[in-house]
Amino acid sequence: MPEPQQAGPVSGIRTVAAVGTGVIGAGWVAYFLSRGLRVRAWDPAPDAADTLRRIVDAAWPALTELGLAEGADPHAVELFPTVAEAVAGAGFVQESAPEDLALKRSLLAELAAATGPDVVVASSTSGFPMTDMAQEIDDAAGAARLVVGHPFNPPYLIPLVEVVGGERTAAWVVSRAAEFYRHIGKSVIEMDRELPGFIANRLQEAIWREALHMVAEGEATPEEIDRSITDGPGLRWPVHGPCLTFHLAGGEGGMAHMLDHFGPSLKAPWTRLDAPELTTALRDDMVAGAEVSAGGRPMAELVAERDRAVIAVRRAVEAARAAGRS
Rank of each mutant, 00 (worst) to 15 (best):
H213M: 11
A200Q: 15
T221G: 05
G185N: 02
V215S: 08
R236Y: 09
W208Q: 12
L235G: 14
G197H: 01
E223T: 13
A178I: 02
I229V: 14
R209Q: 11
E219T: 12
D231C: 14
E179R: 05
G232E: 07
S228V: 06
I207D: 07
A216N: 07
Q204S: 09
E223F: 05
R182Y: 04
V188S: 02
A178F: 07
D231S: 15
Q204W: 06
M191R: 10
V188A: 04
R193E: 15
I225D: 04
P196F: 00
D231Y: 14
I199K: 05
M214C: 07
L195W: 03
R236N: 12
E210I: 04
G232M: 08
E179H: 01
L212Y: 13
G185H: 07
E223S: 06
G185Q: 07
L235Q: 09
A206Y: 08
A200N: 14
T230C: 13
A216K: 06
S187I: 10
P233Y: 06
F180H: 00
W208A: 15
S228T: 14
E217N: 08
E179I: 03
L203K: 02
A211M: 02
E217Q: 13
G234E: 03
H183N: 07
V215M: 13
D226H: 13
R193L: 09
I199Y: 09
V215R: 12
E223W: 06
K186L: 02
E190H: 04
E190V: 07
P222Q: 13
S228Y: 08
E205R: 14
F180M: 01
L195K: 13
G197W: 02
D226K: 09
A216Y: 03
P196L: 01
I184R: 00
L203Y: 06
S228K: 00
S228H: 07
I229P: 15
M191H: 13
